[in-house]
Design a protein around this nucleic acid. Structure first.
Lengths: 356, 356
DNA sequence: GTGAAAGCGCTAACAC
DNA sequence: GTGTTAGCGCTTTCAC
């Protein structure tokens, strides 16, 4: 049971170079200029540090200094591809900037996550994706502990939280723009009676997309919304709300689904009822999931700029940490990915082509 | 610029309770019994800590103690669903055990990752999924720094690395079992001439699966292997090696693809050449990707127990950290997911059913 | 140009 | 039963 770890420390370099720990510290932190250290000395120090393979002890450094170079990431299930891609981009960006991530899964409960974050003295937090268990206490604790936060892909319509968002920036997907793209695309494909299929009501994006649909569509015709109240999977939501729509009297030739899973549920329902997609009804989803390329028919969708979301959230957070800007909200633009499910008249699934 | 953070420290509790920092420390670390501290005192301390909302400073604790409670995770692109699921399970398990993850993306380069790990004094490392840039230096540095390691889903046939695996445990997927399941399933479905489609040669799992296929199939017929040499995507590998097979003279009625992506490429090729799947040729993949449920036809596959992989790797690592066991290798069993692509005679895509 | 000394918050050894 | 003291490895302040 030896007490000291076998690591190289500043003092080891100091002894070898016959200098003081202090000098070594200054050089290795690039503060040689302002400390007025001889160029030759600095060189010697660096050389020795290199030779010995010195790696500073983050714990010791953090204890003394105020910064920990650690950024918390609070995230829901990472198996969702949008979140996985966003997380990947965040990790890339943090790594590029020499920062360390501390990832906590929301399912562990916010108290536990909060404690882990504070205990490890994270300097900033990125909150990644919609979460249900979000409350004022959480944000207040972050604020009290001076943890600046960026929220990405997560909308709050709970206005009670507004006053706790003093130190929170947002990277939002421009949902309005997404729905606009969907409607315009369907019009261009010759569709004139477009319905909206909603998903579970706890999803905050859902409300925005539905509202946008209603606002935009009513210049053309009465909004037609398929919605069920059951608290069930997205797929089932799609299936049964589509079923409901078909049972109604309104004629429709296109459906905007809240997301891809809802769209897939809807397509199954349409098949079961003998409707052809896209022949009778065009269907478009949202999220551009990997499976969209393999569905029958291939599913048109809206793609989110996950790379940009990740990069921008780190950027925004660092601006705040360096006090460059006030907390702010930025929007990133989604884009259209047109596939078979919205083609004008392709009754049959497209034949396979050599992959690209 | 105040120096002290506004956190509650041990000394604050000490002052309020008129006790020494030491006593507080002992109580809050649950060492009151062995230190012989009065039950009443302990209660008082805990109550005060609770009231003040005390959260220890991990940095200070780590500097003094030897353990950091931090486990490194070294992982390739997390957008792959198998890795995402495994990572999710790992994060769950670490969180359950009160450990903190430090995740580094392999793409950052092993030197950078290694430095981050050592700098943050991780106690153990989980290496998650196949990586190409793996070398002896990496493992030697881990060993030198007393970092115990678990490798999951990553096979090395480079025997030169064997001597650096002194402190490495393995959680492997039983690939042999997977291929066995595939072959048995195809036989049960009445297929008698089964080919194997390989993927990129840098993939270490590939070699094992191919070898297993060859060993098992030769009791029935000569192995038929489709393989191309181009260094290209898995999808293209599937397409062109299938193309190659079809151009050859051997009759086949089933294809085992190295993985799902290869399988999808193969299916496209079969369609293009006018072969019906599964009517003429059955196809089975490996990995059970989410899109398998939406392909045309739905793709039979082999599912990996990602949850178990995650849980077991943390378990194995902790056993090592507590010196309970020697480094070891364990195998987890994959399972068969039969879908349309291997059905005996279903010529048409199955009609949609209400989702389950 | 460089060094000495203090101290970040905590735990471990030992004293009383 | 509880307190005193030292020190983990580093940065910071100030002295020379």
């Amino acid at each position: 049971m030896k007490k000291r770890l076998n690591r190289i420390r500043l003092i080891d370099i100091a002894e070898k170079t016959h200098l003081s720990v202090n000098t070594i510290s200054k050089v290795l932190n690039g503060r040689e200029k302002e400390a007025g250290i001889a160029v030759e000395t600095a060189k010697r120090v660096r050389k020795m540090a290199d030779e010995l393979g010195y790696i500073p002890d983050q714990m010791a450094r953090c204890l003394r200094a105020k910064n920990t170079d650690t950024i918390g990431v609070y995230i829901d299930k990472i198996t969702d591809h949008v979140r996985a891609e966003t997380l990947h981009a965040i990790l890339q960006e943090l790594s590029n900037r020499g920062l360390f991530p501390l990832i906590m899964l929301a399912e562990a409960g916010y108290e536990k996550c909060c404690e882990a974050f504070i205990r490890n003295r994270i300097e900033g937090l990125i909150l990644c994706g919609t979460m249900q268990a979000m409350n004022a206490d959480f944000f207040n604790r972050l604020y009290e502990n001076k943890i600046k936060t960026v929220i990405t892909g997560c909308f709050f319509h709970d206005r009670n939280l507004n006053n706790v968002f003093r130190e929170v920036s947002f990277v939002n997907v421009d949902n309005e723009r997404g729905v606009e793209l969907q409607i315009r695309h369907l019009h261009e494909q010759g569709r004139s009676r477009i319905a909206f299929l909603s998903g579970p009501t706890h999803d905050s994006d859902m409300h925005i997309r539905k509202k946008t649909y209603m606002d935009l569509i009513k210049t053309v015709h009465e909004p037609v919304v398929g919605q069920i109240d059951k608290d069930t999977s997205y797929l089932e939501h799609g299936y049964w709300s589509m079923d409901m729509l078909l049972a109604g009297r309104q004629e429709i030739d296109a459906v905007i689904a809240f997301d891809d899973k809802v769209a897939l549920g809807a397509i199954r329902c349409l098949h079961d009822k003998g409707r052809n997609v896209p022949g009778d009804v065009a269907v478009i989803g949202f999220d551009n999931s990997p499976e969209d390329d393999y569905t029958l028919p291939r599913l048109s969708s809206i793609s989110l700029p996950t790379q940009e979301i990740g990069t921008k959230s780190v950027e925004l957070l660092l601006d705040r940490l360096e006090n460059k800007t006030k907390p702010k909200t930025i929007y990133v633009l989604p884009s259209l990915v047109a596939r078979e499910s919205t083609q004008p008249s392709a009754g049959k699934p497209q034949k396979g082509n050599p992959p690209d």
